[in-house]
Amino acid sequence: MGDAVRAEDDRHQSLSEDKPPHEDENAVAAENDEQDDELRRLLLPDDVSSLPLSPPSVVETNFVRYYAPDFMKPGHDQYVYRHANGCVISISSSFLRLPLNCLCVIGLAPTHVALQAEGGVTSVDFNVGKSDRSEFKVTGKRKKNAQHFQPNSILCNAASGEATYTIRCCVKGSLLEVNNRLIQNAGLLNTSADREGYIAIVMPKPTDWPKIKESLVTFDEYKKLRKLS
């Protein structure tokens, strides 16, 4: 019992020792200043003029960009942006370790016919056939309720004036979410199809990925194909 009390006292003592006595206040302030100076030096870029005029966008840095040109119909060019996180493909000898799941963002490539049409896309409808794609509620780490989609499964219909365009999944995988904001604001497709105007997020099975990848073209190949600079 006596020991316990003494230990308690010791601790209080050590705590109070940490609090700077008044005469050392200047020293502490100096130390804080030093810390602040160091912090400022580290935070500011070394050479402002070396920064790019406009830096690579989050899409360029975080995703590997693939394209599905003329998907099922001429001019139906779509993109598949594969997020680089968790995409380590297991090649090790351990059979127990599963390769991590990796997400693909699906959307309309700038050369898609719907975007080329006069007035651009005017409305997006996720209610296709039997089910409304925007009604699925995927929950939990294991993505319960996620629907399995085939490359030709329809995600939505985009309308431009009188014309409607069928937008398909392009890849085989589980549909995690569709971009609900397109229902209210279809114009996002016209202003930023590659970011805020994405169509859906799909999670392919890691084992399916090599085959999916074969069906797509890279960013460079796409540029060459569409004669973009």
Binding site: H83, N85, G86, L103, T139, K141, L176
Partner: peptide, 10 residues
């Protein structure tokens, strides 16, 4: 975030 969606609940 899309970045962690593969391992976290949506």
């Amino acid at each position: 975030p899309v970045r962690v969606l593969h391992r976290r609940s949506p």
